[in-house]
Amino acid sequence: MGVWQLVLVGLVMVLGLVGVVVPGVPGRWLVWAAMLWWSLHEQTGLAWVLLVAATAVFLVDQVVVWLLPTRRIRGVGITRRMAVFAGTGAVAGFVLIPVVGAIPGFIGGIYGSERLRLGSHGRAAASTRTVMRAAGTSVLVELFACLLVVGAWLGAVIVG
């Protein structure tokens, strides 16, 4: 696979990660489609294993999100800035502390956004809890699954 195709697969995956925190964009599907594209062009054992693993991760992710309470975004105060902070925090956490760092990074991003908006620790912490109860958990689960798949793909590209 050429460098340009790898760059395009990576860009589609990044778009998928952004799509997880932006309503209306099918983030999980974009990441899976990019993995499928890469696997079809690579046609190695590792590529097929990663495609099967990504499919399994996304099926489990779908079930977990389905079992969680529905998203109640209206009236909670979720803003675009909060989504950007949460997504950036999750990606930064995933890079700094591989895999598990996405969770505190996501929550820390929401807290940071609310601390800037509200000014005090107590109000920001209360708002962060409210957001996580309303919609944050399902977004976090989906983002975590996408980060796992993207991380596995990136590892395969760097190693292979």
Rank of each mutant, 00 (worst) to 15 (best):
Leu67Phe: 03
Ala56Ile: 04
Ile78Cys: 00
Met82Phe: 07
Ser113Leu: 08
Cys146Tyr: 03
Val76Asp: 00
Ala86Val: 08
His41Met: 14
Ala34Glu: 08
Ile97Met: 07
Thr88Cys: 15
Val95Arg: 12
Gly101Leu: 09
Gly105Trp: 15
Arg133Gly: 00
Leu118Asn: 08
Thr128Ser: 08
Ala83Cys: 05
Arg28Val: 15
Glu114Tyr: 09
Ala90His: 07
Leu96Ile: 15
Gly87Thr: 12
His121Thr: 13
Arg129His: 04
Phe85Pro: 06
Val131Ser: 01
Trp48Thr: 11
Leu140Met: 10
Arg28Thr: 15
Val49Gln: 12
Thr137Val: 02
Ala83Ser: 09
Leu30Val: 14
Gly119Arg: 08
Pro104Gly: 06
Gly105Cys: 13
Gln43Met: 13
Ala92Ser: 15
Leu67Lys: 07
Thr130Asn: 01
His41Tyr: 13
Asp61Asn: 14
Gly75Ile: 02
Ala145Cys: 04
Ala102Pro: 10
Val60Gln: 03
Leu59Pro: 08
Ala125Leu: 12
Met132Arg: 01
Phe144Ser: 06
Leu96Glu: 09
Val65Lys: 04
Ala102Asp: 11
Leu118Thr: 06
Arg71Phe: 00
Thr137Ile: 01
Arg81Glu: 12
Thr79Asn: 05
Leu116Asp: 07
Glu42Pro: 05
Ile97Trp: 12
Trp153Thr: 06
Met82Cys: 08
His41Cys: 12
Leu147Gly: 05
Ala33Asn: 07
Phe106Thr: 11
Trp66Gln: 02
Thr130Phe: 00
Thr128Pro: 07
Leu40Asp: 10
Ala54Leu: 04
Gly93Ala: 05
Gln43Ile: 06
Arg71Gly: 00
Thr128Cys: 08
Glu114Cys: 12
Ser120Asp: 15
Trp48His: 13
Cys146Phe: 03
Met82Trp: 11
Phe106Ile: 12
Arg71Cys: 00
